[in-house]
Design a protein around this nucleic acid. Structure first.
Lengths: 111, 111
DNA sequence: GGTCAACCCATAGAGCATCTATATATGGCC
DNA sequence: GGCCATATATAGATGCTCTATGGGTTGACC
């Protein structure tokens, strides 16, 4: 979607944290959620999603547990930890500040 | 500012294109312009700026010319080409779409 | 006339996030 | 039995940004 590929780099983990803040979900479900809520504008590739989840597990922002889906398949459910919830706050406010700053530059007119 | 460091990755070239759309400027001036317009929120490092300008020269989005600054120093002035102006349009509308999409996801509440 | 701040360009190398491609496996449907 | 949607995961490549440098000029102040 943005420069290199589909997503704006640096926003993936924030979007995952936000998604999980609404409830536990497995990886595939996370991707679907983001895709649907963004009106199909954002597509999270599997090769981006799972590495991101591994990073976030390592940082303690999410915890994982193997469960059965409603459709009887085995899936790994991720949930937000306290640290993850805190991180969501940090990232989303930093993102908002950055967006406002970029918007200011992009709105400038000829002096 | 964002994830890795200061800028939201993928937005630097767009910010440079936008800055040059207001008039020719040398590298140093571009960095100052972005810094000032963003209320000091965005700082473009020289190690990011000059490689970006080289990439953009190679892609034909900008053209460069050595001139004298008002302060009597020799500086390389960059200006937007027609292709660069077109690219600015492409990137800024893609960016806006992405921002709207991200905002939709970030505003979601518990079902 | 020395030195310091501000001005100005540029590259090398590292780090990190994302993408492409691939591998594996199950359940439901026809 | 074959196909599609569901589901997880890694390897390798790519590309952008940052850190760390290096060089050089001008003007002002002491």
């Amino acid at each position: 979607m943005a420069s290199t590929g589909e997503l704006v780099p640096g926003t993936l983990e924030m979007l995952i944290l936000k998604t999980l803040s609404l409830g536990s979900l497995h990886g595939y479900g996370i991707a679907q959620h983001i895709h649907r809520l963004s009106d199909e504008a954002l597509t999270v590739e599997e090769g981006s999603l799972y590495p991101a989840l591994q990073r976030m597990l390592a940082k303690g922002w999410v915890a994982a547990e193997w469960k059965q889906t409603p459709t009887k398949r085995r899936a790994r459910y991720y949930r937000l930890t306290a640290a993850g919830r805190k991180q969501l706050g940090v990232e989303s406010s930093a993102f908002e500040r950055a967006m406002r700053a970029i918007t200011r530059v992009m709105r400038a007119t000829e002096s």
